[in-house]
Computed example of a mutant assay.
Amino acid sequence: MKKLLCTMLFGTALVLGACGGGGDDGASDGSSDNGGGSTDTAASGEEIFQNNCASCHGSDLSGGMGPDLTKVGSRYSADEIANIIKNGRGQMPPQKQVSKEDRQAVASWLAKKK
């Protein structure tokens, strides 16, 4: 019984740690600071994804611990994806530490994956 409890606690800590935010409050190259166009948003959305989400969803969006996101844009709009990031869904915990701007950047980038 203790072994099962320890395994579950370790697994939960691993999931929460892997899906948690990076603490760098934005893109390291400053590309999101200029309020730029869609290219900047797409680049920062992908960078934010790689830094915060790829550990569960795979760096190529193919999934792993989290579901495959290669065609997520065909199922959900950018607003729906942003809502899932903010509030969680299924096994994915809410990502409250992700700023609204970062959440929108990732959601917009993922919504184009069809």
Rank of each mutant, 00 (worst) to 15 (best):
D60S: 15
Y76R: 00
S77Y: 03
A78M: 00
G58V: 01
A82D: 02
Y76N: 00
L69W: 02
A78W: 00
T70G: 07
G66E: 05
G66Y: 11
D60H: 09
S62P: 08
Y76L: 02
E80M: 10
G45H: 04
I84M: 05
I84N: 02
A42D: 10
A43I: 05
S59C: 01
I81F: 06
G45M: 07
G64K: 10
P67N: 08
V72C: 09
I81G: 03
S74C: 02
S59K: 10
G58H: 03
G64A: 07
K71N: 15
K71R: 14
T70I: 12
S74L: 03
S62I: 05
G64V: 07
I48A: 14
T41C: 03
I85C: 05
A82P: 04
E46S: 12
G45F: 02
T41W: 02
A43D: 06
N51I: 06
E80W: 10
C53Y: 08
L61S: 01
S59Y: 08
D60G: 11
S55I: 11
F49E: 05
G63M: 06
G73P: 09
E47R: 11
G64H: 09
C53V: 11
P67K: 10
S55K: 15
A43S: 12
G63E: 05
Y76D: 00
M65D: 14
A43M: 05
H57I: 09
G58Q: 01
V72I: 13
A42N: 08
D79K: 04
P67T: 13
S62E: 14
G66A: 10
A42S: 11
N51R: 13
I84Y: 04
G64M: 08
S55T: 14
N83V: 01
Y76A: 00
C56Y: 13
A82I: 08
I48M: 13
D68A: 14
E47L: 10
I84S: 03
R75V: 13
A78D: 01
G63Y: 03
D68T: 11
S44D: 12
P67Y: 07
G64Y: 11
G63N: 04
S74F: 03
D60I: 08
C56V: 13
M65S: 14
C53R: 08
T70A: 09
C56L: 14
M65P: 08
D60F: 09
C56Q: 11
A54E: 04
A43W: 02
S59N: 09
G64S: 07
N83D: 09
A78G: 00
A82V: 05
S44F: 13
Q50G: 13
T70D: 09
A78S: 02
D60L: 12
A78Q: 00
R75E: 15
L61V: 01
A78E: 00
G45Y: 03
K71F: 09
